[in-house]
Design a protein around this nucleic acid. Structure first.
Lengths: 333, 333
DNA sequence: TTGTATGCGTTATCAC
DNA sequence: GTGATAACGCATACAA
């Protein structure tokens, strides 16, 4: 691999000049520039980004830490980040890390990507690494939380109003006459899920009902676990009128459980869920849900981070709250 | 940020010694080591991976270039890569790039990640950058193709037998008595899709039927485009008995089109598709499909690349062909 | 058992 | 208009 020295030698100039034509960072006489460009082409020279990063202390790489790229919510969010960064015209790349809600895994990822000197971080924290993250933020390292935040860490964040969206969803169920409403809760250490549970309780309380602990089933956040959780919901005695699923994997597992029990929705039991799917229309039953603007959340996170990286914004962290959309379909009865 | 010099000074040793305790690369007296470790902790020293990469000419970063992480096929594949790399105990990270089947975008991504000196590349090529990739391979840069390959570029690859799987799928349709079988084809520059079309033609030919060009509809590979393509299929006159969808987005779009036209499947028209979905059971109609082992494809790709990186395997490129699974459900009638 | 010194390939500061 | 050269932070060959 040719280096900048080789180019300089071949063009009969100094490395400084080559560097400057490469970066367009100072005037170079047209004829000189031409010779340099020719040498670059001749040698098929490619600048070494690692050496460059070392010198400039900036890598052009951003870390994205989420729980599961297989979740359409996150893949959509990721796309929002990627498209936005590209649209900004930066040659930034994204290192994607899936924590699967595991704090140790998250910690390990944090260690290695920080060692790699990423310029900034976008993350949906799994919880459990508050101290580490607080230390990062304290030394001004750019961090943006997305989907979830950590009360112990003050950083830029983009979220939705989970509590109010959940409240609306459950109120809708109450409006349709359902009273015995179960909740299938994903057990993540995520404040977003906690807020959704609160919204559920709010709605019940507003209807003069108490949240019955027996009506709550917890499940790990993957489809298989949610399926088992869904069975548990259906096996409650007496069977609930309706069930609120706290995220899209819960909904998918719940629907699978309905199938397994040969029950039909909404006839036998109604269902509402947090999160929509890209292919919701091909689903049966058609799910009544709250859709999060996942792509836009990624987009906003990228913009927040970019503003910090470019020092276009300094000072205290800000919170961007994006609106959700209520989609009334068949599953709510 | 503390550097290795700071640590050396504080511990009263040379930088060489610090480096060696960091990398466990030569004997260091226990007491000395202890002082170094203490200094590291005291200063909260973190090694600079960029400087390290420059010196070692190895970054611990792998590029993954695919067309669309929102496609469950690819997100599953990505997970397979990630889990496998982690399981190998390497501190490798993955830079994920979505090309959206755009050769220019792919080229740009290639440029920037090569400049970042990734150690290797796993890619599902969009087509159009054969020369660039061939040059990479020629200078021994580790490249693994996955899902698709490029006839002009000889590199390790992991694929499935697309042609035979498609043939089986279409023969199944013929077995069920369907004769006028349309094909909804994703227009990618991917040999995998070409093989699927051939399989479709094989099956028809074997049944003594000619592939009628009128029965083929091309569509870009996203759900919205496939929806429009699906409408075109349904508007053929006379309407086909059945349709073969060449990938999962085609299937999704086709189903949406059925809905829009108020047609039911398989009663009005049968359907089979390449690729299964993680939540296929919640789909209506239940799709008869060929499932690809997407996660395992990612896994195998990671293993192939790893073997190259560690020089455990040298010599000519190899091809790993993984088996597909035929899933007969309702949509085929 | 440990230390010294060189170089990895750039960028940027001076200097002319 | 252009050039010399000192860092950036680390790993390692060579010395002691």
């Amino acid at each position: 691999m040719a280096t900048i020295r080789d180019v300089a030698t071949m063009a009969g100039v100094s490395v400084a000049t080559v560097s400057h034509v490469l970066n367009d960072s100072r005037y170079v006489a047209p004829e000189t520039k031409e010779r340099v460009v020719a040498a670059i082409a001749e040698l098929d020279y490619r600048r070494d980004g690692i050496a460059r990063s070392l010198r400039r202390s900036e890598t052009g790489t951003i870390g994205v830490i989420i729980s599961d790229i297989k979740n359409p919510f996150f893949s959509d969010l990721y796309k929002g980040v990627e498209d936005t960064i590209n649209g900004l015209g930066e040659n930034q790349n994204l290192i994607l890390c899936n924590t699967e809600e595991d704090a140790d895994k998250e910690r390990k990822y944090l260690d290695v990507i920080m060692e790699k000197r990423v310029d900034g971080l976008i993350l949906a924290p799994a919880g459990g690494n508050e101290d580490y993250l607080q230390a990062l933020v304290k030394r001004q390292f750019p961090v943006v939380f997305v989907d979830r935040s950590l009360s112990a860490v003050r950083a830029d964040q983009v979220v939705v109003d989970n509590r109010q969206a959940a409240r609306e969803l459950v109120r809708h169920l109450l409006d349709r006459g359902h009273r015995r409403i179960a909740i299938l809760k994903a057990t993540l250490h995520a404040d977003s899920i906690d807020r959704r549970v609160e919204g559920y309780e709010d709605a019940l309380r507003a209807a003069g009902l108490a949240a019955d602990p027996c009506l709550r089933v917890d499940s790990a956040s993957d489809i298989d676990a949610a399926y088992r959780g869904g069975l548990a919901v259906l096996d409650l005695d007496p069977r609930p009128d309706a069930v609120f699923c706290t995220n899209n994997f819960m909904t998918l597992g719940m629907v699978r459980a309905l199938d397994a029990r040969g029950l039909s929705c909404p006839a036998d039991i109604a269902l509402v869920g947090f999160d929509d799917f890209p292919w919701a229309d091909s689903f049966r039953p058609r799910i009544t849900a709250v859709a999060q603007p996942s792509y836009e959340m990624g987009r906003e996170a990228a913009l927040l981070l970019h503003a910090r990286l470019r020092k276009q914004r300094t000072g205290p962290p800000i919170t961007v709250t994006l609106p959700t959309t209520m989609l009334v379909r068949d599953s709510s009865g």
